[in-house]
Design a protein around this nucleic acid. Structure first.
Length: 323
DNA sequence: ACCTGTCAAGTCTGG
DNA sequence: CCAGACTTGACAGGT
């Protein structure tokens, strides 16, 4: 079994390479009051830098044997803001997007986006659902412009509980049917740490044929009494059967006992180690997204720590083999 | 050079 | 019922 590792959006090692430069709405408005051209120009400039840095990060990934990467969702500042509806950011920066897409394809990098927690497919409020679709479409449009097929995915959560979990799960199913096919084919669903457990998420994934991203820290924070990971794994794996992609998990470690849900700087390898040992007889490969404050540095350390444990061979900086 | 408050977005909680 | 927490990196504006 091969286990590959990746990190989220930014590097703490590569300097001055943020892919998330921002222009706040307030800044935009202040500029636009005097000169609307200059305001758009600023957003365009920041977007260009964010794309250039994203490509730098991808180059760095390849230099370090990293094949898994999550893009920043903030590449295009204010892209989905109603005030900027007229800006065709995709066409504007097409050449850069194609260049990035080519690099990803040449180097077979598995890329994702993780639209943030304002994207809620199961919201009972129609305007929230609509803006969620806009946001999902925005992320898909970027991947389409990079000419990437549906191996490039979006990771989202089920959504809010709205004081009735069962009803909210069913509303997810209703609203799922309203998503354009071009969007739904890219989506993967992740269990969350407060409301929808891995079991809930699997219910939707199996019913709607959505690949599931298993977050093992979220599982620890939020699971049904008596529910063990071991029992869920075969179901989790089979959600990936038809995708041609290895199953994907997220790992993180709690900040502290009292602040359990927050991410720590680094990852404690022991939880992942037992998970890997547990699934090593399933004859699957695994892709692991490291979610830690120390980003790529935490990822390298985790791989190094794991490689010292029994039954683990180090392949390179970002890949181990379980024997 | 460094520190602090603020930022597009939604939901949940605690007062 | 409403204000603040949640979470996050980056920036604006202050010292």
């Amino acid at each position: 079994m091969l286990v590959r590792f990746g990190f989220v959006a930014m590097s703490v090692i590569l300097e001055n390479a943020s892919p998330s430069g921002t222009v706040t709405f307030k800044t935009y408005q202040n500029l636009a009051e005097r000169d609307s051209e200059a305001a758009i120009a600023k957003i365009r400039r920041v977007s260009r830098v964010n794309l250039a840095n994203s490509l730098r990060l991808l180059n760095y990934c390849i230099a370090e044997n990293i094949k898994i990467y999550r893009f920043s969702s903030k590449i295009f500042p204010l892209a989905t803001h109603p005030e900027l509806a007229g800006w065709d950011y995709i066409n504007d920066l097409k050449a850069q997007l194609i260049e990035i897409g080519n690099f990803i394809k040449e180097n077979k990098i598995r890329v994702t986006f993780h639209p943030d927690h304002f994207t809620l497919i199961n919201s009972p409020r129609e305007e929230v659902f609509k803006s969620s679709v806009t946001d999902l479409a925005h992320h898909c449009r970027i991947l389409n412009a990079m000419r990437l097929d549906e191996h490039a995915r979006l990771v989202i959560h089920v959504g809010g509980g709205y004081s009735d979990k069962e009803e909210s799960l069913e509303r997810f199913i209703e609203n799922w049917a309203r998503l354009p096919k071009g969007i739904s084919k890219r989506i993967t669903l992740e269990n969350d740490d407060k409301t929808f457990t891995a079991n809930d998420t699997l219910y939707l994934c199996e019913k709607l044929q959505i690949p599931m991203v298993l977050d093992i820290h979220h599982f620890r924070c939020n699971h049904e009494e008596g529910c063990v990971l071991e029992d869920l794994c075969p179901r989790f794996f089979s959600t990936w059967d038809k995708t041609g992609l290895p199953p994907k998990i997220h790992v993180s470690s709690p900040r502290s006992e009292t602040d359990f849900r927050s991410h720590n700087d680094y990852i404690d390898s022991s939880e992942l180690y037992s998970f890997i040992r547990m699934v090593s007889n399933y004859n699957v490969n695994l892709d692991v997204m490291v979610e830690a404050k120390q980003k790529d540095k935490a990822m390298f350390r985790l791989v190094r720590d794991l490689s010292k444990l029994p039954g683990i061979d180090l392949i390179n900086n970002a890949c181990i083999k379980v024997v």
